[in-house]
Structures are given as C-alpha cells and as structure tokens.
Design a protein around this nucleic acid. Structure first.
Lengths: 99, 99, 99, 99
DNA sequence: GGAACATCACCGTGTC
DNA sequence: GACACGGTGATGTTCC
C-alpha cells in the first residue's frame, strides 16, 4: 500500500522515532489521498443527483425525459464535432504554413 | 419535444402574440432545462478530472493507483454493506411480523 | 457490415462465380452469427421466464418474494466476496513485492 | 422468511414432532425455491457467456460487434412491431365482427 | 480487459 | 384491476 520506493520497507515495529518519521508522513499522505478522492466522489454524486432532479422536475412539467437526454447527448456530440473540425482546420492551416 | 398538455399544440406560426405566450414560455423552459443539465454535466466532468489528478499525483509519489482505487472501492462497499445489513434486518423483521 | 479485410470489397454484381465465393461465404457467416445470437437470446429469455415462474409459485405458496430475492442476492454477493477477498490479497501481496 | 400464514409461527424449539412436520416441509420448500432460482440464474449466466463468445468470435473474424449488436437489436424491434401490428389488426377485425 | 457510467427493463406500489 | 410511477437491478457502452 505504501509508495514503492524500490525496496521492502521496514516494518512499523522497527521504527522507534518520533512523529514526523517517514512512515508517519507516508501514512498521512495515504490517508490524505484516500480522503480527497472520497470527498470528490461525494461531490460528484451530489451533481449526479442534481441532474436527476432536473430531469424529474422536467418530467413533472410534462417533458419526455428520454427525448431530453437525447437532445443533451446530441448537443454534446455536436460540440465535440465542432472542436474536431477546428482542430482539423488548424492542422490544414499549419500544413500550408498559416498556423 | 414540448411538454404534453393533452391536446395538439398550435404551430408556431399561428402565434402572433407578444413574449409571454405559452409557446415562448415552453421554449424558455426547455432551454432552461437543457442548459441546467449541461452546466451540471460540466461540473461533474470537472470533478472527474480532479479525481484523476489526485491519482496522477499519487502515482507520481510512488503509489500504486490500482491498489488505491481498490482501497477506495472497498471502503465504499463496506459503507454500503453496513446500510444494506440494516435494510435486510428490517426486511426480515417485517417478514416475521415484527416490523 | 461485412468483415473488414483491408480493401474495398467487390460489389455483389461483379461476382459471377458459383456458390462458395467469398461474398457468399461472408454472407452465410454473417447470417450464422446473427441467428446464433438470436437463438441464445431466446433461450435466455426462456430462463428468465422460468425464474419469474418460480417466484410466482413461491408467492402463491405464501412466500414474500421480496425477501426471497434478497436472500438470493445476498448469497450471490457472499460468493462474489470470497472471490474478491482473494483478489485483494493477491493485489496487496503484489504491492509489497511478494507476488 | 417462512410463508406467511397469517399468524406468528411457532418457534422451532416448540416442535417435538418427527420429520415431515410442517416446519420441515416449509424449510425444504424454501431451500428448493432458492436452489431452483440459483440453478436457473447459473444457466442464464452460461447463456450470456455464450453470447459473448459468439461476438468475440465474430470480432476475431473481422466483424464490428457494435454494428452486429445493432442489427440484432433492430431485428428484435421489427419482430416486436410485426407482432404489435398483428395485434392491432386482430383488434380491428374483432371490432367489425370478424374475429 | 476491466472498471465507471448511462441506459434500459423489471418489479412492486399507488392511483383511478 | 389496469395503468403510471418510482426505485432497483441488469445490460450495454465508454474510458482507461
């Protein structure tokens, strides 16, 4: 679990030092990583729930959520395509020395 | 696409009125729904990127991201399981008439 | 739809040969694939219906199908978990260089 | 877990009878239900795996599995529609007394 | 190839 | 008692 430093780590019981020793630091770092990820995933779940709410509200107003989802999807694709087209254009411009 | 109001809707060209007519309202509402969803999905993507960053940073510090992801997953499962066990208990109690 | 062989395929009308030409073979192969999948999906649906029947019969005998489904689910999870635990152990052992 | 007979069941320790008493029967019945479901779900999983295999084999032969899946889906929809159409036709025929 | 995500179908429930 | 709804579990797709 600990970062791989290229050698087998000393076991915890070998460590007699004060707080601040490498193992402690690594442990804190590990906990920090885990908790940051967990915090972000909670936020992400919150957003997902918000999206569901929007669709639920739309449905309550008589919209067909399946169609709505399709619309959002298509617009996303279009946006991606536009970006793609610009990238190609840039490529062409570069190719003829007009970057 | 428009909310189903139970009758055939007037076509747009029949409408001569000022802003504020039902079609306009419906259109605005539709746009509002789409944009709210799109905004939220952007936020969601941002969070996903943040999570990737955390893992990337961890990897740079020598951690095995595969293991890290596993740890996060296990902790999530454990939390879910605790909840699940309570739900099962309730279910069983109900089943034997001790709700 | 046809398998990509890396070159543009001859159109059907160009082919004058007897049965056994590549296009025929490809066509037969395609039909075979589709029909095998369809046959299997029918079987699968049959099994799903059988499962529904078992639950329906159980319900008729006074069992709470919700609880029954839960029991089946739990047993499946338990089996999966046992497998999972071994996988985690392997992963951890690898992580500390004891693969 | 046991079938609901409308009253709280005697606890097991109250039962002094020989094999063949109602509790034993209920228990056997319960086990039978669970095992039949589990057996069927295994079969179902087997079929699913078979389907995956067919697609894998098709892929190995150069087919685009995404397209293949689409084809299967469309054919299924068509079949369902045909059935639907027949049902509507029957309905109309009944309506005019030509059932 | 496996995990995360979105979609889809089913089941149980409330309503008329 | 059928139909619509929400929640839940399975399936298919995408990303890594």
């Amino acid at each position: 679990l600990l970062p791989q430093t290229g050698h087998l780590r000393r076991t915890k019981t070998e460590v007699k030092g004060m707080a601040g020793n490498p193992d402690e630091i690594a442990k804190d770092q590990l906990i920090s990583i885990i908790e940051r990820v967990e915090r972000l995933e909670e936020e992400k779940k919150g957003i997902s729930d918000d999206i569901k709410e929007v669709y639920a509200e739309a449905k309550a107003n008589g919209y067909d959520t399946k169609v709505l989802r399709k619309v959002v999807q298509i617009r996303k694709q279009d946006a991606a395509e536009r970006q793609e087209h610009e990238a190609i254009l840039d490529l062409y411009l570069s190719a003829i020395g007009l970057a």
